[in-house]
Design a protein around this nucleic acid. Structure first.
Lengths: 91, 91
DNA sequence: CAAATACATTCAAACATTTAAATAATTAGA
DNA sequence: TCTAATTATTTAAATGTTTGAATGTATTTG
């Protein structure tokens, strides 16, 4: 992982709404849809769409289109790679 | 670790200068001083002081005063606690 | 095909972060 | 004590992020 992607992921994790989205998607393996997230968080659909975009663009979430819905999942490999970079900071 | 501290740490890690500071402090165990960081990064002393403040306030760096210098070290426990929170996001 | 559903995009306003200049505070050494 | 060295703070400008309203784009269903 390069420093730029580490930065992008850290930024994506630096917002309470996005942290909550990650927690919920993590808990609901494979079956979390955007509409569910909209119900869960007190923001407009637009704002949530922006947040999800940051999470998918950083690589933390994988989006899979299913008809007119989208299913999200946490990319565990990305979390692990990020974790490794982080651990290296300990020296 | 609560969600608020996780957010603070993520934010602190969401900047390329601060990532570099973490990397260098990690590599130079116990003997990194502010002046060394100022030499390393092409920013004013003021800007670097602000960045270091974010890193210490998030808990990532421990500052130890030594005369008129300050010695920095990575708080490995904080990194580990953050890592655990992160791993929980995988579900 | 028309209407409804689900999500994305554009844009502008509100808000937050980053940076440097100037200045302050603390400490060491002459 | 006076001066130099090291780090912190205040302030203001520039830049970046977050948010919602409005609108757009697919896709399903009647």
């Amino acid at each position: 992982m390069d420093i730029k992607q580490f930065e992008r992921i850290s930024k994506a994790l630096g917002d309470p709404h996005r942290i909550r989205i990650m927690q919920q998607v993590g808990k609901s393996p494979g079956c979390m849809q955007c509409a569910d997230i909209v119900e869960m968080i007190d923001l407009t659909q637009s704002a949530i769409s922006h947040h999800i975009k940051q999470l998918t663009e950083s690589g933390l979430l994988i989006a899979e289109k299913q008809g007119r819905n989208i299913k999200y999942a946490v990319d565990k490999d990305v979390v692990d790679t990020y974790t490794k970079f982080l651990q290296q900071l300990k020296g």
